[in-house]
Amino acid sequence: MLQFPGSCDERDAVLACKRAGEARLVWHRGTDLTGLDAIVVPGGFSYGDYLRVGAIARFSPAMGAVAQFAAEGGPVLGICNGFQVLCEAGLLPGALLPNTGLRFVCRQVELEVASTASSFTRGLATGERLSIPVKHMSGRYFAPPEQLDALEADDQVVLRYAPGDEPNGSLRRIAGVRNKAGNVVGLMPHPEHAVDPLTGSTDGLRLFEAASGSLAAA
């Protein structure tokens, strides 16, 4: 679990990971990722979201190590601000723009699984619904139309907001995408906040379990 100055969801995400395996925090100045089987880039407001969301965090020393880890096939999950950082770093396609409604959106959303060919959705079913919260100001997924067509043709859209439940004006209802290999996934919703019946849903846990399961199988 990476931690930047301004991260705020890393502790919840560590707790979520611990329900599917073991986890520890890695401060963003660190570049030694040995012994880690998967990396999570957590949500929050890294570097105050100055300039553009995720723009400065991508230059953290740890991000070079994460890029190498991803290039070697290691599973990497970016959640919310972590998704924005992975897009800025070029590890995932597209960009996240301010919500169409210009408001911070914080609520439970219904998601549809669009691709199961990723380290974090393996074992789920295409079309399956997940109930997971969002909380963000800049979650409007954008890529040029021809790139969106290519993403869809390559099955790189991992999650979509259910019709009628779009919170931010994302193009083609995209809530999460993956890289071509499927080991790097980013999503705006927060699966780490949906791992206990106390908070209404345990659907988020399934993404962490999918990663843990695919590691065990490998």
């Binding site: 300039l51 723009a55 400065i56 230059f59 800025e88 960009a95 723009l97 954008f142 890529a143 040029p144």
Partner: peptide
């Protein structure tokens, strides 16, 4: 590299 994201 930094000041603009040329995708958007």
């Amino acid at each position: 590299r930094l000041l603009a994201n040329t995708l958007i």
